[in-house]
Amino acid sequence: MTVDWLNFTPWSSLAGGALIGLAASLFAVGNGRIAGISGLIGSLLQRGGEGVSEKALFLLGLLVAPLLWGLFAALPAIEFQSGGLGLIVAGVLVGVGTRYGSGCTSGHGVCGLSRLSPRSMVATVCFMASGFLTVFVLRHLLGV
């Protein structure tokens, strides 16, 4: 294993993580809700859900963040490593997986681990492991 020291950003990632933790804390302590992005989007797509305005406003805040950032600094680069078809397939897999697994990196990885939920620990270990495996197979075995 070789660490990519050139691109490793310990301090900004730690600070960004702390902000995410603060956001999850505010949503939990203030609104009584879990800041799980896949769950919030999923429940907005269901009819007759509760708390629609709060969930929509959280997601709106998420979308406004890059606009606000852009007023003060240049937005960080976004590099995709696959084309449109790859992104669609990946998006569908993420959608099915997060529904089936009841959460994603934010709901299970941040909120679930923070409230010491065993279910979230299993989910986080599983999606991380399958991410490591998928990248290994695609990049190093198939050379995609």
Partner: peptide, 17 residues
Amino acid sequence: TAFIAGLLFGLGLLLAG
């Protein structure tokens, strides 16, 4: 608070890369 939480979450993601 819902909006601010979402905003902070998004800024955190950006800062974190």
